[in-house]
């Protein structure tokens, strides 16, 4: 049992590493010709978008509550991390260490903000909660527009460019893994029970409010991490970047990928953040194409592309291996092993 578990961890680590190696090699040897740098940029964007979308999926998919204010927490993380890295720059920390400190700071501040917003807001459900989260995100944006330290309504620029594809990829892998482990633990089970029926959850001894606030805070934490990477990749930002449109974009990526599937969030975010870029050649028509894709997915896969299905490398390998061996061996195999996913 333990051996199988370790094997499964190793397998997933190898899986993530292979994806990383392939990408790195492609970028190193100009695999995309002249546009390699550009593609690398798109991939970095995809990495932090994945973190944001997956974290939103914790709330929307697993807890079953609509949040239209995720960009607010992203911006909290972005600004907090930028302020921290600005203060610590030139203190002898290496780029990577500085990035990690900034990312953690961004995540923590966003997580605390999520908790503070969540305590009053999560008394509400459904549409009401959606509107309140939207309002909170607007409040956050307006506050940043008026604070001295964030540069007011002007662009906050000169943030050190610490995030590269390499660091973003690994931070993304770690974040998605943690979220996955969260979902596959008693916390995930509890949160899903709340989604299914909060009255029954309460009657089963679950402190619904506590777990909702907790999940919201964790979701905000990772939103902040995503925001921190955003800040240190873009190096400049303005509060209006994190407006309602940005929240709606993240939400649509969650829904397209599949509410309640982290695999869906990873693929959905990667795909949808790359899609508008790769459609640039159609210039003005690209947003039309993007919309058409959204409509089609909603028509044919209302639960999102992946629904609630999760990709498991262990399962896949077992399946491939099982074809060679006797089927009897596979009969008792439960997909119990914890999987990591990396894309």
């Amino acid at each position: 049992m333990t051996k199988q578990r370790k094997l499964s961890y190793l397998l997933n680590l190898i899986g993530v590493a292979v994806v990383f190696a392939v990408m790195t090699l492609l970028f190193a040897f100009q695999g995309f010709g002249d546009s390699t740098t550009y593609v690398e940029g798109v991939c970095t964007t995809a990495c932090y978008t994945i973190i944001m979308v997956a974290s939103l999926n914790l709330v929307v998919g697993f807890m079953g509550e609509f949040s239209l204010g995720h960009a607010g927490f992203v911006s909290v993380g972005a600004y907090a991390s930028a302020i921290v890295s600005g203060a610590l720059a030139g203190k002898g920390l290496s780029d990577l260490a500085l990035l990690i400190v900034a990312v953690l700071a961004g995540g923590l501040v966003a997580g605390i903000a999520g908790m503070l917003v969540g305590i009053p807001a999560l008394r509400l459900r459904g549409d009401y909660l959606a509107i309140v989260t939207m309002a909170f995100a607007e409040i956050i944006r307006v506050v940043f527009c008026n604070l001295e330290i964030t540069g007011g309504g002007r662009t906050m620029s000169g943030i050190p460019k610490l995030a590269t594809f390499h660091s973003s990829f690994w931070i993304m892998a770690v974040c998605v893994t943690i979220m996955f482990l969260f979902v596959r633990s008693r916390f995930g089970r509890t949160v899903q029970a709340i989604r299914e029926d909060y009255i029954a959850a309460e009657a089963s001894g679950i402190n619904v409010t506590f777990y909702k606030v907790m999940t919201f805070a964790i979701s905000s934490f990772f939103a902040g991490v995503g925001g921190a990477l955003y800040a240190h990749y873009m190096t400049a930002m303005i509060p209006t970047n994190f407006n309602f449109n940005y929240s709606a974009e993240l939400l649509s990526e969650v829904i397209i990928g599949g509410t309640g599937s982290l695999t869906g969030s990873v693929i959905g975010a990667a795909f949808l953040s790359a899609l508008p870029e790769f459609m640039r050649q159609f210039s003005t028509y690209r947003m039309l194409g993007y919309s058409v894709v959204l409509v089609l997915v909603m028509l044919f896969r209302p639960g999102g592309i992946f629904g609630r299905w999760e990709f498991s490398l262990t399962r896949l390998v077992k399946k491939i291996a099982g074809r060679g061996k006797a089927k009897a061996a596979a009969a008792g195999a439960l997909p119990q092993a914890a999987e990591k996913k990396g894309e």
Binding site: F182, S185, R186, E196, G205
Partner: peptide, 30 residues
């Protein structure tokens, strides 16, 4: 009022709050 989209066993496990004492870090580091 069941947790409809969860498995039968998860329905039962979800009600076992009292039996579980491991915290978030313990869940993440397994």
């Amino acid at each position: 009022r069941l947790f409809k989209k969860m498995t039968v066993i998860d329905n039962v496990k979800a009600a076992m709050q009292e039996h579980l004492t491991y915290g978030l870090p313990q869940a993440i580091f397994r």
